[in-house]
C-alpha cells in the first residue's frame, strides 16, 4: 500500500512539474522599451514583433520606466541613456537592484567606449549604438536572449 501511494505521489509530482515546465515554456518573455524618442520606441517595438515576446509597455523617461518596471517586472529591457527625469545608467542600476536577473540591452547614440563600459559594468547584458537598422537590432537582441 505504501508503494502504491509513493508511486501515485511520484506520478502527480512528475505531472505537476511537467505542467509547470510546459506553462513556463509557453509564457513569452516580457519586454519593456525605454527611449525618450517616440520614433525609436515605435521602431524597436516594430522590429521585435517577430520574436516570441510580449511588449508590456514603453516609457519615455527613466522615472516612468522604473515605475513600470517595478509594476510589471519584465524579463528584458531595451534602455536609452540620455533621457529626462532619470538617465538610463541610473535606471539600469535601480532596475537590477530590484530584479537582478533582468536582461538590459542599452540602445543609445552615445557610442563611446566609456558609456558602453559603464553600462556593462552596471550589469547591462548588451549594447547597441545608434544609428541602427532592423537587422542590427534583431541580431543584438537574439544574441542577448540566447546568452
Amino acid at each position: 500500500m505504501f508503494d502504491t501511494i509513493k508511486k501515485n505521489f511520484t506520478i502527480v509530482l512528475f505531472c505537476g512539474i511537467n505542467s509547470i515546465y510546459k506553462i513556463y515554456q509557453e509564457i513569452p518573455m516580457k519586454v519593456l522599451i525605454v527611449d525618450d524618442s517616440m520614433i525609436m520606441r515605435r521602431a524597436i517595438e516594430g522590429y521585435l514583433k517577430d520574436f516570441d515576446i510580449e511588449i508590456i509597455g514603453t516609457a519615455g523617461d527613466g522615472k516612468t520606466a522604473l515605475a513600470l518596471f517595478k509594476e510589471k517586472e519584465p524579463d528584458i529591457v531595451t534602455m536609452d541613456i540620455t533621457m529626462p527625469e532619470m538617465d538610463g545608467l541610473t535606471c539600469i542600476k535601480e532596475m537590477l537592484a530590484h530584479k537582478k536577473e533582468t536582461k538590459i540591452m542599452v540602445v543609445t547614440a552615445l557610442s563611446d567606449e566609456g558609456t558602453a563600459l559603464e553600462a556593462l559594468k552596471l550589469g547591462a547584458a548588451g549594447f547597441l549604438a545608434k544609428p541602427f537598422n532592423e537587422q542590427m537590432l534583431k541580431e543584438k537582441f537574439e544574441k542577448m536572449i540566447g546568452a
Binding site: 524618442s37 547614440a109 557610442s111 563611446d112 545608434k130
Partner: peptide, 8 residues
C-alpha cells in the same frame, strides 16, 4: 541626438 551622441 544621434549626431551629437556619436560625436562623443
Amino acid at each position: 541626438n544621434t549626431i551629437a551622441g556619436n560625436a562623443k
